[in-house]
């Protein structure tokens, strides 16, 4: 596999972009940073499937496409099964020798938002992982259905206000906790599962390359701050991601073969989740005295999860 060097940014920047501008994602959207990074970290041919979501509706506005690779969109839920089918066909045709270039390296990638991954497409993705197709599934986790107006998804964390779980006099927003999708996918026995963030570009590029190289289904959950629904200024996308990783709301780690857990980034100064929450409009109501207890609850959840990750890293189980 021809991989781009990610030793430093200068060398990485010699990659030729295969994701074109003039898509209609919001200014400052992290989705396209993640997609660009994936497509820049390899020279191989890519076959990409995308679930319905912000990424899909914005990059294929008829009569335009922003993708310089093979790209397919079918439904909200089935990028994983579409790419699984394409991969199976490629394997069969390679065996029969009916491809135009039998030796050309091809990688299969599926993109999905958190709605398509955590809720609507979960069954399809789980099925594709069980069948063991050689593909990489990348979830762009912006914690709501941003494409349709910011409804709650099962990725929305506790306390966030969304258009269908609104904060007000009687409610502090969403009351349920976020699904732990990384552990769920690791429990499928996938050879490589990780949670990565765009502000740590190097660990993200290395994680992508590892997932593309690994044979079998790989899952990567990426944090994708949404300036529209998280309610912050577009220019702050990277600094919000910094806060998310440094406050351990989004710890960066990988799980190999379902048990070997490695923490990829340990913040020098662990911030309080309060700093992360205060930077976003969707948590503004939590700073009222009556909802203070939710912040404590979030902090406790984050601390417990970090403790669990550290213990798992040590125990190797």
């Amino acid at each position: 596999m021809a991989i781009t060097s990610v030793k430093n940014l200068k060398e990485f920047s010699t990659a030729n972009d295969r994701f074109e501008g003039a898509h209609t994602l919001c200014p400052g959207c992290a989705h396209s940073m993640i997609v660009r990074e994936l497509m820049n970290c390899t020279d191989d041919n890519l076959v990409i499937g995308t679930n319905t979501g912000c990424l899909e509706v914005s990059t294929a506005v008829y009569p335009f496409t922003s993708w310089d690779t093979s790209w397919i969109h079918i439904g909200f839920e089935n990028a994983a099964s579409a790419i699984g089918g394409a991969e199976a066909m490629h394997k069969a045709r390679k065996r029969k020798g009916t491809l135009s270039d039998n030796d050309a390296p091809v990688k299969f990638v599926a993109f999905g938002g958190d709605g398509a991954t955590f809720d609507i497409g979960f069954q399809w993705m789980s099925g594709a992982f069980e069948r063991g197709h050689d593909f990489t599934y990348i979830c762009l986790d912006n914690e709501n259905y941003a494409n349709t107006g910011g409804q709650r998804s099962s990725a929305t964390p506790i306390g966030a206000t969304t258009s269908t779980a609104q904060a007000g006099k009687h409610s502090y927003g969403k009351k349920e906790k976020k699904k732990d999708i990384v552990s769920i996918m690791a429990a499928h026995g996938a050879p490589y599962v990780a949670q990565l963030a765009p502000n740590k570009w190097k660990s993200m590029a290395k994680g992508f390359q590892k997932a593309l190289e690994t044979e079998g289904p790989c899952f990567i959950n990426t944090v994708s701050p949404c300036c529209t629904e998280w309610k912050f200024e577009p220019k702050d996308t990277i600094s919000i991601t910094d806060l998310a990783t440094d406050s351990l709301m989004f710890p960066i780690y990988e799980i190999i073969d379902g048990h070997e857990l490695n923490i990829l980034y340990r913040p020098k100064n662990v911030l309080k989740v309060e700093d992360y929450l205060a930077a976003q409009g969707r948590y503004k109501h939590l700073f009222k005295p009556e909802y203070r207890h939710v912040i404590d609850e979030i902090q406790k959840g984050v601390d417990d999860y970090w403790e669990m990750l550290q213990r798992r890293e040590e125990a190797r189980v």
Binding site: L9, K10, S13, H23, P27, C29, R36, T237
Partner: peptide, 19 residues
């Protein structure tokens, strides 16, 4: 030429050639 802008530009709008 640190290329920070290149890696984080969401719109592929930073023209960067030969580092």
């Amino acid at each position: 030429d640190c290329q920070n802008c290149w890696v984080w530009c969401p719109d592929t709008s930073i023209i960067s050639r030969d580092k």
